[in-house]
Design a protein around this nucleic acid. Structure first.
Length: 545
RNA sequence: GGCGACGUAGCUCAGUUGGUGAGAGCGCUCGACUCAUAAUCGAGAGGUCGACAGUUCGAAUCUGUCCGUCGCUACCA
């Protein structure tokens, strides 16, 4: 039975390059999960897009003397290139800059407004008269009233760590122009989040299979008390507010529209495929499932705010699961492209083969807790695990068959209990891995697939087909065909993780028929193999840095 | 400050509701094999599960305190 699976992935912010932490935290796990579900025949819609609005983009645009859209287009193009290069496969990758997205956002805004979940409130905020802009808290700097630190930001003091209100700052100044900001009154729309506290709490309590850190954090938010949130900003760069009673110069704020992107992207997919009701299969069918792949910093948006918006709107499916990952750290520090910690996705792909990088990151997915990686650790994973266990296994079996059997799979003789046991083991591990992937334990799933490869290595060492080739060629042939038939199952389990090398094997062994092990037909041509994964020369790599 | 975590073999990490002598991968030592990308396979060494106190017949697992690391703190997304 084909089940609709919405794979919703955090919208990368087009203000700069994304790094390997983002790849390991959201995009790669989503891709592995989606590839698995496509392979078992489910109806998958993996959607996301570049988040192109917001203040940081306008600030960067000003700094470079270009338009905000130029910044957004530059990084959107970079992201699309990143996905292409590392095999992140989407049903729909779009951006928040489309006309469709604006319309869907405005529709949901109006629905929430009409149902009384959005209202207007006045507040006071700093305004930079020099650049003519209201200032987000973090763009106001000044002296911390607690510790005297002179470069405290309006939201928080980096020195003493205390949370601040911009008006607390002594000698406030605008980060944009350096001038002294003035306080002006402004009016905005607010989402009445607090109205949903009870409903959200009950919903979260009913979740099963969610990661404990996601539930803990979300419930903690509710326990502390949900604040109503402003969902519009004094900004020219964003989705227009569909009512005009706030006056000009206001836009819908990015976090409000970015999550709506999951819905608008599904509708865009419908349009692209010419099936107007396609999106309903994912959003209104009670049997559909939805998984939101995000980093832990995004948990409140996906486990609290977005569900509240969906509850308020009505008629749309709530998340099945939000399998948020924790952080990947680089040598102990939080990855940050802007601070030069870790590698951008592009840099990672320049250094490593895409499948090799995917393997190393997947083996280190921060599913339970933060995980630490480094270039050395990535290289170790590739050389000592991926190439040694799996790459070498494929190479040794294909080489022997190619050399000893005229480049084609020989006929299989009588299989011994040992032979049958290997094939059974591969099948059992495939089943075990399937359960792990379905419960989004992707790191464990990869380990299971590697266990399967190791089982074949153990089998070969026990049966020694290179030896029997001289004494009992028929037995040797049977061992090799058994190993090949086993490999044919192992590669199915690895295919969601390693799409590029899997495609290479598809060319020899044929496309996978599904999530199952099948025998390779007798006589299948087996060409002289080349290593699936080149070894990483760490010294040469570091010499380039 | 508040909140959420984390601290388990040299390294990176698993350890469901507390219970046979604490695990995996890699590294290391020894051995086997030599088909294969000096790859593979076996055996072994290596940890008072951050510290202290407590609950319990019994705790890495529950409670408290402390030390250390990290993240979040709602106007970065």
């Amino acid at each position: 039975m084909s089940k609709p699976i919405l794979v919703a992935v955090a919208w990368p912010y087009a203000s700069g390059s994304r790094h390997l932490g983002h790849l390991a935290g959201a995009y790669l796990p989503a891709d592995i999960f989606a590839r698995y579900h496509r392979l078992i025949g489910n109806d998958v819609a993996m959607v996301s897009g570049s988040d192109v609005h917001g203040t940081p983009i306008t600030v960067r645009a000003d700094a470079e003397g270009v338009s905000p859209s130029a910044i957004a287009e530059r990084f959107h193009a970079e992201f699309v290139d990143n996905w292409e290069r590392c095999g992140i496969k989407w049903e729909c990758y779009t951006s928040t800059g489309t006309e469709n997205h604006a319309r869907v956002t405005q529709e949901m805004f109006m629905t929430l407004l009409e149902k009384g979940h959005i209202d207007k409130r006045r507040s006071e905020q700093f305004y930079d008269e020099e650049v003519g802009r209201f200032l987000p808290d973090r763009y106001v700097e000044g002296t911390c009233p607690h510790c005297g630190y002179t470069d405290a930001r309006g939201d928080q003091c980096d020195n003493c760590g205390r949370t601040l209100d911009p008006t607390d700052l002594i000698d406030p100044r605008s980060k944009m122009s350096g001038s002294v900001p003035v306080v002006r009154e402004t009016e905005h729309f607010y989402l009445r989040l607090s109205d949903f506290a009870d409903q959200l709490g009950e919903w979260l309590d009913s979740r099963v299979g969610w990661r404990s850190h996601v539930l803990n954090f979300s419930k903690g938010w509710i326990t502390e008390g949900l604040h109503d949130r402003a969902i519009t900003r004094d900004l020219e760069w964003g989705v227009k507010i569909p009512v005009d009673d706030l006056g000009p110069g206001k836009r819908i704020y990015v976090w409000f529209d970015a999550v709506i992107g999951y819905l608008s992207a599904a509708k865009e997919l419908s349009e692209r495929r010419g099936e107007p009701d396609l999106w309903r299969r994912f959003w209104q069918n009670p049997d559909a499932e939805s998984y939101y792949f995000v980093g832990k910093d995004n948990v409140p948006f996906h486990a609290i705010i977005w569900p509240a918006m969906l509850m308020g709107n009505g008629g749309l499916n709530l998340p099945t699961n939000v399998p948020a990952n924790q952080y990947v750290t680089f040598k102990g520090g939080k990855a940050s492209a802007s601070r030069g910690v870790g590698l951008t996705i592009g840099e990672g792909l320049d250094m490593f083969e895409p499948d090799s990088l995917r393997y190393a990151l997947a083996a280190s997915f921060p599913e339970q807790s933060d995980s630490d990686i480094s270039i050395e650790e990535i290289a170790r994973r590739i050389n000592e695990e991926l190439a040694a266990t799996w790459g070498n296994l494929v190479n040794r079996v294909l080489s022997m068959i190619h050399k000893n059997h005229d480049g084609a799979k020989p006929a299989t003789g009588e299989r011994t209990a040992e032979d049958l046991q290997l094939l059974a083991t591969v099948e059992e591990l495939l089943a075990k891995e399937a359960k792990q992937i379905e419960s989004v334990e992707l790191k464990a799933g990869l380990r299971t697939a590697m266990d399967s490869a190791q089982a074949v290595n153990i089998y070969l060492n026990a049966t020694e087909p290179w030896r029997s080739a001289k004494t009992d060629p028929e037995r040797s042939a049977t061992v090799l065909t058994t190993a090949l038939d086993a490999i044919n199952g192992v590669r199915v389990g690895l295919s969601p993780y390693l799409p590029f090398s899997s495609a290479k094997l598809d060319a020899i062994l044929g496309e996978p028929t599904g999530w199952e092990r099948v025998d390779v037909p007798d006589g299948t041509p087996i060409p002289k193999p080349s290593p699936l994964f080149p070894k990483v020369d760490l010294e040469a790599l570091e010499a380039d840095l």
